[in-house]
Amino acid sequence: MTEMLKIDKLNKTFAAPTGDVIALNNIQLQVKKGEFITIIGPSGCGKSTLLKIVAGLDTDYTGAVVLNGKPVDGPSIEKGFIFQEPRLFPWLTVEKNIAANLSLKDPTTRTRVTELIELVRLTGFEKSYPRELSGGMAQRVAIARALLRNPDVLLLDEPFGALDAFTRAHLQEVLLDIWQTNRTTMLFVTHDLDEAVFLGQRVIIMNPRPGHIRSVQPIDLPFPRKRSSSSFQELRHKVLSEFEKVEEPTIDVGAGI
């Protein structure tokens, strides 16, 4: 068992005029290669902050974040990131968005882009502009764009949060497919309980003020999972009860399908 990502005594404080905000307090987390981790917690508990630190977008922290044996000190191609919004470049077509700073004139990139467009089922939309896409299609472009770099670890910050239930369910399947084929390590942030239990091999439960890991729930269910199965419901309840111990029920409970 190889630990790919090690987070040790991670602390992050934001300086604010109204006083410092402790966004992350003593985070300890180890992630194995190829593991699917979901992180759930109410808004403001530091999920995005944690992901940005792992991505290397924010290097102002104390503690250790080590990926593949190297401390994280900035973005790198081994770390892919998918944001809540697709964040496509509006002036580029779908295929050019996926290629981004890589050239489509390079035959290997060209072939990979075509494959990825097929994978996220956007064949026929290669030359479309982002304004012509629905939210779900745009998010699929963002997924393809992240996958083109063959990242070892994919960081996803509530990627399906803004989508309707059907599109979300579909993209969850797409993501599981990708994970099973490529064995990409996944760090998936969500505020949707069903999504966390449906996708994750371990669910990290976070709480705010200050942001910390409350508990870790292993989900020992084989894939593909069935939301209606009693074992699924049982685990879902277990995670939910972790939140009911805190006063504010800020978790999105009813968003499952």
């Binding site: 973005p75 790198s76 990131f81 944001f83 470049f89 700073n101």
Partner: peptide, 8 residues
């Protein structure tokens, strides 16, 4: 931020 992720 996207351009930073892709190391433009």
């Amino acid at each position: 931020e996207v351009s930073r992720i892709f190391q433009y």
